[in-house]
Design a protein around this nucleic acid. Sequence first.
RNA 1: GGCGACGUACCCAAGUGGUUAAGGGGACGGUCUGCAAAACCGUUAUUCUCGGGUUCGAAUCCCGACGUCGCCUCCA
Length: 474
Amino acid sequence: MSLRFRNTLGGALEEFQPLDPANVRMYSCGPTVYAPAHIGNFRSFVFADLVRRYLAWKGYRVTWVMNITDVDDKIIRDAAAEGIAIGTLTSRYTDGFLDDMTRLRITRPDAMPRATEHIPEMATLIATLLERGHAYRTDDGSIFFRIASWPAYGTLARLDPTTQRVGERVETDEYDKDDVRDFALWKGPRDGEPSWSTPIGDGRPGWHIECSAMSMRYLGPSFDIHTGGIDLVFPHHEDEIAQSEAATGEPFVRTWLHCDHLRLGGEKMAKRTGRLLRPAEAYAQGWSPRALRYALLAAHYRAPLEFTEDSLVAATSAVERLSTVLAALDQYESDRLDDPGVAQALEAAHDAFEDALDDDLSIAPALAAVFDLVRDLNRRIGDRSLSSDDARRAAEELRDIDQVLAVMSPDDGPAREVSGLVMTLLEERVAARAARDWARSDALRDDLAALGILVEDTRDGQRWRVQEGHDGTA
RNA sequence: GGCGACGUACCCAAGUGGUUAAGGGGACGGUCUGCAAAACCGUUAUUCUCGGGUUCGAAUCCCGACGUCGCCUCCA
């Protein structure tokens, strides 16, 4: 089967066909760096990473761009409150964001453009909109997009602009718009606010224009996939489409993908309500980054996901189950001949995994296929019915699948060589067990545990794996 | 008020017309083991929010009720 996505634009399940088969172009709305991102934000970034990884796994070359919004009202407000330049504030939170991405195993995008570094591109785009009559200036030097000039406005969000509820929370009179629904492309200069001098005048960009300008800069006027949280559908992405297509006259994005909210206590996780959890806080409570990743990944992206401690308990057990079977396979040895049933099981699991994800990234059946395989492999390990090559191939298959999931290897340097001390202790313990010296054996097990090495005894002898959170280099 | 999503076991979550309702977690029982851990086996939904209807047959389709959440305003 082929890859299909549920396109927010139109709502249909559509077969994915890249505009350029040799290069899938994808853009994700990134963070506004005025505070550490919370795990609700990261749900959308982990989701985008899943799209990116799955496309690559399917054999596509992907160019992935994620913006960093480093100038906006909240950034200006918070920097002023601290008495620092906005760049000082935003570089602080940008660094933190990049660290969080790394720990959550989110692939580094090919480009992460900053808004403040693309002011000229935005000014050019706005100039075009002015020329074409889709934008107008106000007395204070601001420039607005004229929604009345763009009949398709509202298509993405399925909103009828004429019936929008306006008036309840009309923006303050700070900017003098022709129509309350018009949105700011450019904000005129003000005292105490950062300002750039451009051909369209002094001031600073509005929010939506940066994504249009930067996506076009790196991906061209038309590209394949645009991702974001469901709350960006309106007005952000609606505005992006309007201003982009009005400027270029070409279709902006082919497939829009939006993930639903992460919830806490039954409600959307959000900074404004204070109802949130940040990655660092989860780690401080003892949860591992990969368990957090798994918890964010394990539900379908278009379904709301309630985040609870139970979900982290489940995620922790699930990822440990995966790394345990991998460790067992890696250490498995047998003189047996290959069992053709193993190759069949691997192929069946691979196909089921792919079929599930092909269907609009249906992660739950994909994971079910993985865990069905894990149970089968554990059974075979217990029966010693595998050959050494069977075990090696099984581990290879799991690691291949993990190119998409990125949850199987323990955090903190799983692939690293363990120290000579650990190897010596492991050997000593084998000798102690051979001599049935249980006291010595148990003492060595404790010593190894203190070094982050979990030792288990099986019918086939001693088996070990690295404990979560230890790097095994002690 | 408009638009949208949703209600499946103790928890999370697949399944969208037809043999025994995936998978993960938790709990309990068992096997293995010097002990421990891991693993494996078994038990945990005759039933899918409720009430009607269509059908030979529905968790799956239709109507209604109740309940939850989101967007319409900054927001992943």
